[in-house]
Design a protein around this nucleic acid. Structure first.
Lengths: 338, 338
DNA sequence: CTGTTAGCGCGTTCAT
DNA sequence: ATGAACGCGCTAACAG
C-alpha cells in the first residue's frame, strides 16, 4: 500500500497524488477529487518515514522530563502533546529519572530518531551534553537554563512574583517566624526557588534563622521528615513555605501527626498547584506554576524556531501566582505547642 | 552526515559499514575496528528513518491510554517505555481523553507513523475501529477486551482474587452492609469491576441492596458525591469498596466532612493502589493492580509477537491483591450517625 | 496542470 | 570478506 498504488488506481502519476496530498494547489480540482477517492477506497496513509527521509524533517519533537510519575509532569506532557498533534507533530517522551547520566541516553535516542527539536524540561543538565547538542544544530528549548542563542530557546519562570505574593500574604496574616522546606539542593530548580524565597524574606526585612530553612526531596516523605525537623526547633515557625506541593503534603502530615492543626496552629503554602492540592486536608494554599502553559510554550518555542525562517531562539516568560485556599490563617498570638 | 561519509573516512564501502553496524558477523574484526573508529570520529548515528524505510520496521510501538493526568497511567507508561528502550524500541504515547472519537485519531497517527505494534490500554474501544486495525495486520495488545487471535494479544486482569480478598476481609471484620462506588458505567473496566464485586458479594450470600451500589466518575469529586449519596441512606453501609483509589479518596473526604471517621465509623477500600494511597488520611486499604506489571507485560506481548516467527497473539494474566492499610476496621455494633 | 525521474540514507542481494 | 547496485516510499526539479 503506497503512493504508487493510489496513482494506479486513480490513473494518474505519483507526483499528482503527492501534490494533492500536500496541498500544493497545482492540481485541478477534478483531478484532486479522483485522487482523494482513490485514497479513500484504499484506506491509504502516506508513509511518514519516507516523507521524513526526503524532506529531512521528521515532524517529531523530543520531550525530556525527569519522571512521568512525578505529578508535576503529566500535565506538561499532555499540553505539549496536545499542541504538537494540533500542528502535525509527534512527540517522543523520555524520562531521565533525575539521573543526569541517563540524560545522555535520552539525547542520543532523540538524535537517532532525528527529531526536529527537543524540549528539555528537567532541572538538571549535564553541561558537556550541551556542546554535543549545540553541535547538532538541533533546536532546543530549556527550562531556566542557559541563555538564548540561535536555535536555543529558554523558558524563564518568574518565581519572584508568586513567592512575593505568598510571603506578603503570610506576613499580612501576622506571621513572624516563617520556615521554608526546599527541594533537593542538587536540583537547580530547587535552588532557584529557595533563593527566591530568601531574597523575598530579606527584602521585607524579616529576620530569617538558618535552621528554619531545611531540605526536603520534593516528595511526600521528605516533606514530612523536614517538617518534623522544624517542629522540633525550640521556636518552630508558625508558617512554612515549601518547594513543591508534595513537600507541602508531607508537611501537612507531619503537623497533623503531632496533634497540631493546619491552619490554626501552623500555616502551610505549597508550590506548583498540582491537581491534588485542591483535595488535601485542608485544601492547600499554593503558588501556581501552570504546567499547561509550560508545555504549550515549550512546544511553541520549538515550533517557531523550526518553522520560522530565522531559526532564532526565543525567550519566553512564565509567571507564578498565589492560589489562596485553606491551609493559611492568621498567626495565633500564642501558638499552642506541646 | 551519513553512512557514505563514514565509508569514505574508513576507506571502505557503505555495505561494509552497514554490516558492521548491524553485527552481521561477516566482517573481519580488523575491518570492523576501522569502521568503528570512523563512526566514533564523526559522531555518526544511523538514520532511523532510512532504516525503517528499507527494513519495513520502525522499531516504534504505540501506546494508547485514556489520560496521562490520571495517576493510574504514568507508571504504566513508564514501565512500558522502560521495557521498550531496553529493547531498542521507541514509544509514541497518545491520550484519548476518554473520548472514543479521539481514539480514531490516535490510531490514525499510529498507522501513519508506521508503528510496529500498538498497546491499547484504554477501557473504551470503538468496535468498528477494531476491524480497521485488524485490516492493517498490526500487532495489538488490548486490556480486557476481545479475544486472542494471530497478532492480537490480550491482558486479562483477574479482578476476582483481589476483590474476593477484600470482601473476605471486610466480612471477617463483621461488616454486614457493604456499599460499592463504581466508576462511570460507560467504561468497560468500571462495569467489570462492579460486576466482580457483585458476584463476590452474592457468592457469599450477603444481601445487597440496589441503592448501596452507586456510580462515581473515577475521580475525587465523583467519589465524594457518591459517598454523600450513600451517607444519606436510611441505613448507610458500614464499609464501602470503590472502583479506584481516587474515588476512595473522595469517599474519605465525604465521610470526614460529615463528622464521621474512617475507619472507626466506616471502612473504605480503594482500588489500584496508586502512589498516593499510602499518604491519604488514613492510609488506604486497597486492591493493588500493578501498573508496572501491566506496562511491562503489554510491551512483552507486542515484542514477542513482532519478533517471534509465528506472530501469534498471547494471553497474559495479571492479578490483583489486597493491600491492608488503615482505612478498614471492625464494624461497630452501633455506628454513630448524626 | 500533469508526468518522468532523480535522489533522500540505508539494508541487501549479487558479484567478485 | 568486501564492493557495486538496486529499491524501500516519497518529494521536488524538470519536461511537456
Amino acid at each position: 500500500m503506497n503512493i504508487k498504488e493510489v496513482a494506479n488506481r486513480a490513473r494518474l502519476s505519483t507526483a499528482t497524488v503527492s501534490r494533492t496530498i500536500n496541498q500544493s494547489g497545482l492540481v485541478r480540482p477534478r483531478t484532486a477529487e479522483k485522487v482523494r477517492r482513490a485514497i479513500q477506497e484504499l484506506g491509504y496513509y502516506p508513509n511518514t518515514q519516507a516523507r521524513a527521509l526526503v524532506s529531512g524533517r521528521s515532524q517529531m519533537f523530543g520531550l525530556i522530563i525527569s519522571d512521568i510519575v512525578n505529578p508535576f509532569f503529566p500535565e506538561l506532557v499532555k499540553s505539549f502533546e496536545f499542541a504538537a498533534i494540533h500542528r502535525g507533530y509527534e512527540v517522543i517522551v523520555a524520562n531521565t529519572d533525575y539521573n543526569s547520566e541517563r540524560m545522555g541516553g535520552c539525547v542520543r535516542r532523540m538524535i537517532e530518531r532525528k527529531v526536529d527539536g527537543v524540549a528539555i524540561m528537567t532541572s538538571e543538565i549535564d553541561s558537556h551534553l550541551l556542546s554535543e547538542l549545540a553541535h547538532r544544530r538541533l533546536p532546543i528549548v530549556f527550562l531556566d537554563v542557559g541563555k538564548v542563542k540561535p536555535l536555543i530557546s529558554n523558558i524563564r519562570v518568574d518565581y519572584s512574583k508568586g513567592i512575593g505574593e505568598a510571603v506578603q500574604h503570610i506576613v499580612s496574616l501576622g506571621h513572624k517566624r516563617i520556615g521554608f522546606i526546599s527541594g533537593p539542593l542538587t536540583l537547580k530548580s530547587a535552588r532557584t526557588r529557595r533563593s527566591a524565597f530568601l531574597k523575598c524574606i530579606s527584602a521585607r526585612g524579616i529576620g530569617q534563622r538558618r535552621q528554619s530553612v531545611v531540605e526536603g526531596n520534593h516528595k511526600i516523605d521528605g516533606g514530612e521528615l523536614a517538617m518534623t525537623q522544624l517542629l522540633s526547633l525550640r521556636e518552630p515557625p508558625t508558617a512554612v513555605l515549601t518547594s513543591n506541593d508534595l513537600t507541602a503534603i508531607g508537611a501537612l502530615r507531619a503537623i497533623t501527626r503531632t496533634g497540631l492543626r493546619v491552619p490554626e496552629d501552623i500555616s502551610v503554602v505549597g508550590f506548583d498547584d498540582i491537581e491534588l492540592s485542591r483535595f488535601t486536608q485542608p485544601p492547600l494554599t499554593t503558588i501556581r506554576l501552570s504546567r499547561d502553559e509550560l508545555g504549550r510554550k515549550a512546544f511553541d518555542a520549538l515550533y517557531e524556531t523550526v518553522e520560522g525562517q530565522a531559526r532564532a531562539g526565543h525567550e519566553i516568560k512564565v509567571g507564578t501566582v498565589l492560589v489562596l485556599r485553606e491551609s493559611t490563617a492568621p498567626a495565633k498570638s500564642k501558638p499552642r505547642f506541646r
